[in-house]
Amino acid sequence: MTTETTTAPAPARPRRATFGNVVSAEWTKVLTVRSTFWTLLAGIIVTIGLSLLLAWAFTSQYGEMSAADRAEFDPAAYSLAGVNFGMVAFGVLGVLVITGEYATGMIRTSLIAMPRRVEFLAAKALALGAVTLIVGVLVSFASFLPCQLIFKSQKIDASLGDDGVLRAVVGGGLYLALIALLALGIGALLRHTAGSVSVILGVLFVLPIIAQFLPGDWASTVSRFLPSGAGGAVMSVKPAEGVLSPWTGFAVLVLYTVVVLAAALFAIQKRDA
């Protein structure tokens, strides 16, 4: 501590913080808290672990399966099955990135530093999207490749060169990143960690169950357009009955995410911090 403080007061500076500055700040924010590390680690372990487990279980029963079951087998989708559980961790990360600021009071410091709130939240989404996309794609490959080695024992493995396989594996990473962004939007709207995590879990896991109980055609129609059902289509090479085509389904999930983020941008602009 010293009484030497600062230089003379700065004259009004014409300089303006760029959007790049804001993105860089948000990127640093995401990477400088431990919760990011732990949630992503959990996501990686769950995704790869469950995929390997399912691949092993399937391969060991392959001998007793009927021809019809064998024909339905999709080596890409089965090797990415863990994504459907690992996405919880990505969703939690998406929520924490914004509700962590509200819970600690950091949001006020952030908005004093960057009062252009649309830029602030957009930069946050971009930083979160980049982090989760990189980790998501890596975990997707790390899930796919060892599973194919397991499938190879029954000569049912796929390779990245096969039709649609590369799209499915990269799609796994895109899907995880979008879940994180959807969760960010929910977190920004609710501003509360527990509530937002409950909502994202409800959307991903409870809604599909409820949809199953709908009468007649409604069950499959609604399931198909739910975020998880629609977005998950991008990870399959042999589309199952009643599922949207890969990119159409993915586009539906993008649409949900854009709508929720747009609502969040509107809300953060209007509300008192």
Binding site: A10, A12, R13, R15, T28, T32, V33, G100, T104, T109
Partner: peptide
């Protein structure tokens, strides 16, 4: 344009994310 270069504010103490180090907190700002 660059609010921190024109106005500095101390509101309530500890409007910071407790998990982040002091250095990283300031670096983000």
């Amino acid at each position: 344009g660059a609010p921190l270069c024109e106005v500095g504010a101390l509101l309530e103490a500890k409007a910071v994310h407790g998990g982040r180090s002091a250095y990283n907190h300031l670096l983000c700002l």
